[in-house]
């Protein structure tokens, strides 16, 4: 992480991506099912799954944790500015738009 990522700058960045997100169309909601991820207590399990390798794809409500590579799932379609938590590795993440337009995450310490 660059030295310039002070807490205030991160807050500004979150605000910017939130504003962009709000300008978009209404987002889809998803009913999550338990995908057999057994590394967190039962009540949280459906929010995570393992990446299954070649042939697996991410849904619009899913993203990969950059720290531990678990797939994080949300009840709603992900947009830049969303905050997610990866419970298996305790990371706080911010959804951002990559240069190629796809969604990715940054760790927020």
């Amino acid at each position: 992480m660059p030295d310039s990522d002070e807490p205030g700058m991160i807050a500004n960045r979150i605000e910017k991506v939130r504003a962009k997100r709000e300008a978009g169309s209404e987002r889809r909601h998803f009913e999550l099912d338990d995908r057999g991820f057994n590394e967190v207590p039962k009540k949280w399990r459906k929010f995570y799954r393992h990446w299954e390798g070649d042939g697996d794809t991410l849904g619009p409500n899913e993203i990969i944790c950059p720290v531990c590579k678990v797939v994080i799932r949300s009840v709603k379609e992900l947009r830049p500015g969303d905050r997610l938590y990866c419970m298996p590795c305790m990371s706080r993440l911010l959804v951002v738009e990559a240069d190629d337009g796809t969604l990715t995450t940054e760790v927020v310490y």
Partner: peptide, 10 residues
């Protein structure tokens, strides 16, 4: 190990 490395980094 997922918990341990995540604790350290965060």
């Amino acid at each position: 190990e997922r918990r341990h490395l995540g604790f350290g980094e965060n």
